[in-house]
């Protein structure tokens, strides 16, 4: 059937209008606030918080450097900020690895149950999501405190003589984040395993592979999409985490999220907060791009 090309374009001409609601939501919800943050990061802090409409790159400068109050010419690297940046990246990376290492056997366990039981196990995995994050974090604090559950039990058993200080350490933050974000790793991993053809595992064994070799050469490559999705889902909220480092890390073990909140709150330096938020965004995107590239390169290498 011959169709008039003009009519065709005309037909498509108005069709895009159907996506207007989605476009509006995208512009308002995603780009709008982002624009505001970008603009704010180039303004001057207001006296009582907020911003003064005066262009300045000072906020961006202060993300990385500091001026001596008495000698403005004396510029040094802002060690405190860099430490927070580094800790955020490092703790998030560790959280992702911990979630992957513990999430894999968990997902495997669920995927190898009889189909009728799997729903129950998946349901159990999501139970922590039912309680408010803050409450759950305080529950962990309750366990880690000097006179909390763990230390009391160990003291009572006579394993230790004085409580092990666990609160306000990187360990506490890691534990909290791994606990909170674990389901975000388990669920995509489970989805990948559920799709996997278990006969491939049998084929692996049949061709003389040991258990470890089957894991490495058959299972891991097949569930890789699950690892990728899970890592992204864990890493992104980890690096911007606020509640967990605030409650379990205290003032000393701050992460980027806390630093940003500080600038918008007590610090009364909204432009600096906005610039830090942009840095967070840039780090996240860079990490994602690097990660996906590394994954693809590995793929290409194996194929070659």
């Amino acid at each position: 059937m011959a169709s008039d090309p003009n009519q065709q374009t005309e037909r498509h001409g108005w069709k895009w209008l159907l996506s207007t609601p989605a476009l509006i939501v995208l512009v308002l919800a995603a780009s709008g606030p982002l624009m505001i943050v970008i603009v704010y990061s180039f303004l001057t802090p207001g006296n009582m918080g907020g911003v003064a409409w005066e262009f300045s790159t000072d906020a961006w400068f202060r993300v990385f450097f500091r001026r001596d109050i008495f000698d403005p010419e004396n510029v040094t690297v802002n060690q405190a900020h860099l430490a927070v940046l580094w800790r955020s990246v490092w703790l998030s990376a560790q959280t992702t690895v911990i979630c992957a290492v513990l999430g894999f056997p968990t997902a495997w366990f669920i995927a190898t149950r009889p189909p009728s039981q799997r729903t129950v196990w998946l349901f159990l995995i999501t139970i922590p999501f039912w309680t408010n994050l803050l409450i759950r974090t305080f529950a962990i604090q309750e366990m880690l405190r000097n006179n909390g559950t763990i230390n009391t039990a160990l003291l009572w058993l006579g394993v230790i003589n004085e409580p092990i200080p666990m609160m306000f350490t990187d360990f506490a933050v890691l534990l909290g984040m791994a606990y909170v974000f674990m389901p975000l790793m388990v669920l995509p991993l489970y989805a990948a395993m559920d799709k996997m053809d278990f006969r491939l595992v049998e084929a692996g064994y049949d061709l003389y592979a040991s258990r470890i070799a089957v894991l490495r050469h058959v299972i891991l490559p097949l569930v890789k999409p699950g690892f990728i999705a899970g890592s992204i889902l864990v890493f992104i909220p980890s690096i911007g985490a606020y509640v967990t480092p605030r409650v379990l890390g205290g003032g000393q073990k701050m992460m980027l999220g806390n630093l940003i909140a500080l600038q918008f709150g007590q610090g009364r330096n909204w432009p600096l907060g906005a610039a830090l938020a942009m840095v967070l965004l840039i780090i996240t995107i860079t990490a994602l791009v690097l990660y996906l590239r590394a994954v693809n390169r590995q793929e290409a290498k194996r194929d070659g």
Partner: peptide, 9 residues
Amino acid sequence: FQSYALFPH
């Protein structure tokens, strides 16, 4: 195997 079970990757 009946389904061949070739490794897809």
